[in-house]
Design a protein around this nucleic acid. Structure first.
Lengths: 212, 212
DNA sequence: CAGCCGTCTTGACGGTTGTCCAAATTTCTT
DNA sequence: AAGAAATTTGGACAACCGTCAAGACGGCTG
């Protein structure tokens, strides 16, 4: 009897702890999301915890309560960013019935991303560069890079499949190509180069059928 | 007579001024070079003028004497870096007698660069990302990017020429591809991934003959 | 030699940074 | 309802930042 009661009590305690943990984590993500706003605006180098707090509904103390460190906060931001980013093109891939549809869907999404989420993407490139200096970022960054490579590969292999072909390239090379093109287009777009987006679209429109 | 003397005096003054300017500029470059050392070690975000000064033979006041600003200093660093970087493969291109020689020379140089100048290259990626946030960097960064694209194009078109072919790609796409591959390899190399360099070499060895 | 000029040193400044903490407040448990 | 625990606040702290300026130094000119 005592044992059963103890067991039940333990279960209740454990459940409560899980709940608390989940709440704690949800708060962390809320804070990370707020931090991403400022990080995307100012970049890693110019962003301070106080600046993040001021541009959000939180005080700077809260951030220290939920994160042991500035690095801890930014790592959390990076991880959270990943989840949002990696599925961006999945719907297009799933719904496209033929090569043209996939191509146009991809290009449309690419344009939208470049024009409305430029800030988040420049932050990604910023943090990836930081990972070259700060070992604490590397694991997460490399993981995200792998996920993005897989994302591009899903698009490419589906595109090839719709033409009864197979991609004539490795996933790594294909990702390098698209990432390089996107990065260059992003920089030009941020520098107010009106041809940045059309040039990118032209390039992709020509390359994708060649490789896949 | 008076006119001639004045003319001569003016010429002397002008010459002295040019000399002073040259000396001034040489000093700027000396300082920029010293700054690059620390920047390559710590990255843009973590580098302060005082840190730069401490890691060099100069005092922090000198930097303020020669540069109006921190941005001014770093812009000068970037411009100086460009000159060193852009000609890296020219000798290989000029001396190679056939496709194999060019390929192997290129790969050797690539390996050496990745292994001995990783710090300078991660700084380049860092500053290119900074340009997405800081408008003051954009002009120089875009210019360097164009130069690097031209550098890659010289290699590729020479490689094609040695096989009586023409590159089957635009300069922009080719640069995007190689830059993406190099960036990824650099990150992995810095993360102590032993396969980073061999993987890059394999990829290039396969891709170059396909495209050119 | 005196005076000037370009160069450099040194220290001080106001402001910002990451971090920490004591107290206040809210939320949960009993 | 009362006490405990979790959360939040806002301020204090030392360290550091970019910038600046007063003055020292050394070479050159007159």
């Amino acid at each position: 009897m005592a044992r059963r009661a103890t067991g039940a009590a333990q279960r209740v305690v454990a459940a409560a702890e899980v709940l608390r943990d989940e709440k704690f984590n949800a708060r962390r993500i809320e804070l990370a999301e707020a931090a991403l706003e400022t990080l995307g605006e100012l970049g890693f180098a110019r962003t301070s915890l106080r600046e993040i707090a001021q541009n959000s509904a939180f005080t700077h103390g809260v951030f220290h309560y939920y994160f042991s460190d500035k690095l801890d906060l930014i790592c959390c931001c990076v991880r959270h960013y990943k989840a949002k980013c990696v599925t961006r093109y999945d719907e297009v891939v799933a719904s496209a019935q033929n090569r043209d549809e996939l191509m146009e869907g991809f290009l449309a999404k690419l344009t939208a991303t470049l024009e409305t989420e430029a800030r988040m993407h420049r932050l990604w490139y910023d943090l990836r560069s930081q990972a070259m200096f700060e070992a604490a970022f590397r694991k997460d960054v490399l993981e995200i890079d792998k996920s993005l490579e897989a994302m591009i590969w899903r698009i490419a292999s589906r595109y090839a499949e719709l033409g009864n072909k197979r991609p004539a390239s490795s996933p790594a090379a294909l990702y390098a190509l698209f990432d390089g093109l996107f990065q260059s287009a992003l920089l030009r777009h941020l520098a107010d180069d009106k041809k940045a987006v059309p040039d990118l679209l032209d390039e992709v429109r020509r390359l994708l059928p060649t490789i896949c």
